[in-house]
Design a protein around this nucleic acid. Structure first.
Length: 555
DNA sequence: TATAGCGCAA
DNA sequence: CGTCGTGCGCTATA
């Protein structure tokens, strides 16, 4: 194959792939490589992707073959593919499944089968793996104690030979569960096609491969409903872990509304309740509670409280380290991770891959948008200059305070004022990081301010006023990131954001994506101080949006 | 016995 | 890098 100037991709031997955004085939090329390449930079003209072992294994686990990956690159590459890249994809891609885990016939231990003797010898010489292999059963198989299932999978990912786990699951106590066709609230209720597909892919109609993994869906796309659909497939006792009490309550409400489960079946295991039932809801926080450092985790007993047939990890990208550790011991339970972004700020994606499971399903946000399940959104970044006095303050500030100086750029106030004029008549959320700045903004906009100190009662009152249209806007601190009960808005103005968090960007964008009754477009504004570190952070945050197919207008 | 307020941790 | 929000368990209060 030779030079093809129409094409959008430049594939380089260092495993990076450059995508020329304005090339005629850019959209199709992006779609073709997104399943197996990780986006790392997305400025306006050229986006950079990278092939990583994990990105390739996730694609393999989702059923994408190495030939398809190579073909995708060949189809859209501008220059001939470096042969090293083809080899790289083949080597890494083919490694997936060279090791496979089975249950022994009597069920007392696991069997690790490897593809060839050389690999067997290689694994025997790997420090993290050798101690987990109890006995060699044949040239190509090892006996492994069942309790090492998670450790072994984690270690195999580390040494580059991820296992296909075919050892199956224990059966949990039965729990008959039916989804309603009319929700209790009276609304007709049907699973959307992608929700059904996600739950099916997770469960794989009873095949042994299914039953563990991660489903990525945008906020507002109904992850809770996918969870319920999975529960309806499994029909066994389920433990649901979430990040907050609000979210516990939300799951409970949804379960009562959309399934035929009676109230007493759903228990809440929290600071104030500590009940368990066939369906139990708990927070990560109570699980990670310890009376003092170096003590063990008293609430881990929850995992043994019942015979769980399914454990759901809500917001799996926020899973705390101790829960990872115990999840290594729970590999015989079905596990479903739910998230909007698989990206972890601590880089433990490979732990999610090994211990929860590979990514089973995701839909680009833009696709849901075109189907009308989430609202269209326009994202705009507004560069705000600092005046000279402020520039000086920024320049001389200690490095660690620079970000705050940039974030609190007083000229952002003017911009907000102008945006309010432009957006008059719409429902507006102003979100920022620093309470002082938000106080000033609240005064300026005459919108009520909600921070962590605002009592739940007051929040409710204000949300209600916002919903009813009595007030046009709210100023919010970080409570705006996670508060599930926060009403939806048309316009979101982000005056400052936290470092490089893609998660945060996702959460906040999700705020305005609930479909509008009149099909209106939502607007997402990010205010960024010019010539400051904020520009760099902003770029990093936007990676997420680009991954989802959103363009960022900058001015 | 219920509940408000505090300190702590990840 | 620190700031902020959260939920835990404990203690004080009646």
């Amino acid at each position: 194959m030779s030079y093809n100037p129409e094409n959008a991709l430049i594939v380089q031997s260092d495993r990076t792939i450059l995508l020329e955004v304005h090339a005629p085939t850019a959209g199709a090329a992006r779609e073709a490589i997104a399943p197996f390449a990780e986006l790392i930079k997305s400025p306006e003209h050229v986006h950079t992707y990278r092939l990583t072992p994990l990105s390739i294994w996730n694609a393999r686990a989702a059923g994408l073959g190495v030939e398809q990956m190579v073909k995708a690159l060949q189809q859209y590459t501008k220059y001939p593919l470096p042969s090293s890249i083809i080899e790289e994809i083949e080597t890494l891609g083919r490694r997936y499944g060279l090791t496979r885990l089975f249950k022994s016939d009597d069920g007392f231990f696991l069997i690790l089968k490897v593809a060839d003797e050389a690999l067997a010898e290689l694994l025997l010489r790997e420090k993290p793996i050798a101690p987990l292999l109890e006995k060699r059963l044949s040239p190509l198989s090892f006996q492994v104690p069942t309790q090492f299932r998670g450790l072994l999978k984690k270690a195999l990912v580390e040494v580059g030979y991820p296992a296909e786990d075919l050892a199956g699951y224990v059966q949990g106590d039965a729990l008959p569960l039916k989804l309603r066709s009319t929700a209790q609230s009276g609304q007709p209720f049907v699973l959307r096609p992608y929700q059904l597909e996600a739950a099916d892919v997770f469960y794989q109609s009873g095949r042994v491969q299914g039953g563990s993994g991660v489903i990525c869906l945008p906020c507002g796309a109904g992850k809770t409903i996918v969870g319920m659909a999975a529960m309806a497939q499994v029909q066994e006792n389920t433990l649901i872990l979430t990040t907050s009490l609000t979210s516990v309550r939300q799951w409970r409400r949804e379960l009562l509304d959309k399934t035929e489960l009676p109230e007493e079946v759903i228990a809440e295991y929290s600071g104030e309740m500590k009940a368990t039932g066939p369906i139990t809801l708990a927070t990560y926080q109570i699980l990670t509670y310890r009376p003092h450092k170096d003590a063990d985790f008293p609430h881990f007993s929850l995992f043994q409280a019942r015979s769980w047939g399914l454990i759901i990890y809500d917001e799996v990208h926020l899973l705390p380290a101790p829960v990872f550790r115990i999840t290594a011991e729970l590999q015989a339970r079905r596990r479903l991770g739910l998230t909007a972004t698989l990206i972890r700020e601590d880089g433990r994606e490979s732990d999610v891959f090994a211990l929860i499971g590979p990514k089973r399903y995701d839909v680009p946000w833009r696709e849901l948008e075109s189907q009308g399940f989430i609202a269209q959104a326009i994202c705009r970044e507004i560069r705000v200059p600092q005046d000279s006095e402020e520039q000086m303050r920024y320049a001389v500030a200690p490095r660690r305070q620079q970000f705050r100086v940039a974030a609190e750029n007083p000229r952002k106030l003017e911009v907000v004022r102008q945006l309010l004029i432009d957006e008059i008549g719409h429902k507006i959320l102003v979100i920022g990081e620093y309470i002082e700045q938000l106080r000033t903004l609240a005064e300026l906009t005459k919108f009520p301010l909600i921070t962590g100190k605002t009592t739940q009662k007051q929040r409710e009152v204000l949300y209600q006023k916002f919903r009813s249209g009595e007030i046009d806007g709210l100023v919010l601190s970080r409570v705006g990131n996670f508060a599930l009960d926060l009403p939806d808005a048309d316009v979101l103005i982000q005056v400052s954001g936290k470092y490089g968090s893609r998660q945060e960007e996702a959460q906040r964008l999700g705020r305005i994506l609930r479909p509008k009754s009149d099909g209106r477009t939502a607007r997402f504004y990010t205010l960024v101080s010019e010539r400051t570190c904020e520009e760099d952070f902003a770029r990093h945050r936007q990676l997420f949006l680009t991954e989802q197919g959103y363009g960022y207008q900058i001015n």
